Simulated scan of single mutants.
Amino acid sequence: MSQLTIRPFERTDEDYQTVISIWNAVWPEDKADVDHYKYRDETRNPKYYWQRLVVENNGRMVAYGIYCETWWSPRPGKFYFNAAVHPNFQRQGIGTFFYDHVINILQQQPEFVALTADTRESKPESIQFLTKRGFEQVMRYPISHLHVPDFDPQPFEKAIQRVAASDIEIKSAAELMENDPDWLKKVWQLEIAVEEDVPSPEPTKIQPFEEFVKILDNPNFFPEAFLLAKENGRFVSTSTLWKSKANPDKLFTGLTGTLRSHRRRGLATALKVKNIELAQSLGIDIIETDNEENNPMYQINMQLGYKPQPAYLDFHKKIPDES
């Protein structure tokens, strides 16, 4: 007879290895690794409530999940929830057991007003789980893959030459770290400006600079592919790629964006092409990116040869809710 229990996650090698194995079994196309989990745990802002729990079946870990304040949102009382149940133990009520436990905890918070969650279109059972409990889809982010060996830069030569003939310089973080002591502060300022136009269900908080600098400690930081377009000493556009220890043949796109004053000049395309050529030289197979479906960047990616994959879906539930 199965007996389900819940306990806090412990930062031991055994717990890290087990939660990673569960995640990778649930999301084989988006694997994680212990080093990245440890980095996130070590650099998380303690100002915001965050908790990872594990579910055990007769003492064996079979699921885990988190619930936390949405530090990226300015709305007080808004929390995020996520859970992963090992495929061998799905459809046995474990997700419901975990969800009910989290809801009971959060309902003790007097400021609890909203709960968010996400999944992908390829997980119909997860979508059903959320909608059955009163969640509504609020945003869709198509994922796109570029098969790097097939990329041909020739159609984009004119755009690249136009940028090269201008006053724009393209520099990588690897280069800037050597000769510009203020490069990271300038990147932070650029990202604040660019992210104002990134589609989101609601306005997002500005990340303090002392939090932003922690990207340098991220084990997946790839300074050679962290590209900036620079004009008269000012960064005006950026496009970045990130490594993944768990997915060595794959790179992941970070933020790509351009200041409003410098748009429609081919800067984002030039930066992306340069990074794709770098990926080709490294033997990378896939570059993955995601964009809100109405974001113009999505169309740029399609023009570059990216192919749509099942999208990420954001869900939102208002509290109180009788569902």
Rank of each mutant, 00 (worst) to 15 (best):
H316I: 04
I206K: 13
R11T: 06
P296I: 02
Y306R: 09
D33V: 03
R264A: 00
M61F: 05
G254A: 07
E210T: 12
Q107D: 13
E14V: 13
D167I: 01
L241Q: 14
A229T: 07
E56S: 02
V85K: 02
G257C: 07
E293L: 15
F235V: 08
V163Q: 00
A159F: 02
P142C: 03
L282W: 15
H101I: 03
Y312I: 11
S237F: 02
V19T: 10
Q51V: 11
T116F: 08
E42A: 10
E29T: 12
S281V: 06
T238P: 04
V113E: 06
M1F: 05
V194M: 08
D118I: 01
F222G: 00
T116A: 09
Q309M: 13
V55G: 03
Y312V: 02
I20L: 07
I284D: 08
I215G: 02
E202I: 03
L241P: 00
M302K: 15
D290K: 00
N232L: 14
K272D: 07
P248F: 07
S2L: 14
I287K: 08
I287P: 01
M1L: 05
A268C: 09
A268N: 01
T96K: 15
A159L: 12
E231Y: 14
R234N: 15
P153N: 03
I286Y: 14
T43P: 13
T289W: 01
E202N: 09
T238F: 06
H147I: 15
E14T: 13
E10A: 14
A229P: 00
K318V: 09
V55P: 02
P124W: 02
E56C: 15
D285M: 05
P203G: 14
N295G: 03
I66D: 13
N45L: 07
A83R: 11
Q128I: 11
E69C: 11
H36G: 00
